[in-house]
């Protein structure tokens, strides 16, 4: 049964990818890539990767779609050039694909419990993590404890990406809010038309933020954690910006504050590492934080997840602000 679902979803994915290749309306491609990421996420759930599915749903479908839409809004909605040298490309692609498929012949069958990958590090994580880290969710314990240094790297990457986006496109046209809104066709009357939408979204935003907090602090026991919570929290702000305009959203939290929050998140993460060093442990060795190693682990994971969450949240909102401040400029 699981196999049937798996195969059907994979087939849908293939169809979607082909359609993305064929269609030249960029809007249609963006809609299809939204579907593509929904399909991916369901596939991840059917293959037991619930945390990954969580992230993919929040990031791929939500944020990526919004960013792509604001880009085509500011540039062009149509692909104008025909594919270049399609036959040669097809040849290259087929040859590469054939070599890769030949490579899979030696790979263990799908779901084989005797595959080498399941016999090296994973058994130790599965057996020992509950005694060593104390978290039910093994993905969380690997992410933030065993491989905490990796995650610090990822957080810094996200931070850098956010800084680069702001550095590249900035918040241009910030002074000319009135002009831009008139140009984009968003006036006060216009927003008043969507009365139902505004009320419903107003109702939802607190619930979304609350849910984000739940995901943040529940990461030890179920799917979730800093990355996902940050994105969900950011999507609450994106809702607000979409409905009430960029001006209002920037009055709630200004880009300057957001960049401070982002830096604070990374600092929290790094600070926990330094603290453990000072208290006589290794870098990010949470055992020394409290007398009881398990409590120390708990505290450490809590703090660094908080750091990750705040960084991801503020960077996502910053990126969204940067993109949507560009959106109406040209019209």
């Amino acid at each position: 049964m699981e196999l049937i679902i798996d195969i059907t979803l994979l087939t849908f994915l293939g169809l979607t990818a082909l359609a993305i290749n064929r269609i030249d309306k960029l809007f249609c491609i963006i809609m299809l890539s939204g579907i593509y990421s929904l399909l991916c996420a369901s596939l991840f759930v059917s293959m037991d990767a619930v945390d990954v599915a969580f992230t993919e749903a929040a990031v791929g479908t939500g944020i990526a779609t919004v960013l792509l839409l604001s880009t085509i809004g500011a540039t062009d909605t149509q692909q104008r050039s025909a594919p270049q040298r399609p036959l040669f490309a097809l040849l290259v692609v087929c040859a590469t694909g054939a070599i890769l498929v030949y490579g899979t012949m030696d790979m263990p069958a799908f779901g084989d419990p005797d595959a080498p990958i399941h016999h090296h590090v994973a058994p130790r994580y599965l057996e020992m993590s509950q005694q060593e880290v104390g978290s039910d969710n093994i993905v969380t314990s690997i992410l933030s404890s065993y491989r905490g240094f990796d995650t610090l790297g990822e957080t810094v990457v996200i931070f850098t990406a956010g800084l680069s986006v702001v550095g590249l496109i900035g918040f241009r046209g910030m002074q000319k809010f009135g002009d831009r809104q008139r140009a984009a066709g968003i006036t006060q009357d216009d927003m008043g038309k969507h009365l139902v939408l505004r009320i419903v979204i107003k109702m939802f935003i607190p619930l979304i933020l609350l849910f984000a907090l739940y995901v943040q602090f529940h990461g030890d026991f179920g799917p979730g954690g800093g990355f996902q919570a940050g994105v969900i929290f950011a999507s609450g702000f994106i809702f607000y910006t979409l409905m009430f305009g960029l001006d209002a959203a920037m009055r709630v939290v200004s880009p300057r504050t957001l960049s401070y929050i982002a830096a604070l998140g990374v600092l929290t993460y790094g600070g926990v590492g330094i603290t453990t060093l000072l208290m006589g442990g290794n870098f990010l060795d949470y055992n020394v934080l409290r007398p009881d190693p398990l409590q120390g682990q708990h505290l450490g994971i809590f703090l660094i997840e908080l750091g990750v969450g705040t960084t991801v949240f503020s960077i996502m909102v910053l990126i969204f602000f940067a993109f949507s401040s560009r959106k109406g400029l040209r019209q």
Binding site: K193, H194, V196, L197, V200, M203, F204
Partner: peptide, 20 residues
Amino acid sequence: LFFLISSPTAAHALAKTALS
């Protein structure tokens, strides 16, 4: 609950935008 509220709202907004 979320569906009961959001799904009709989305349809309503979609129809309204399409009309406008």
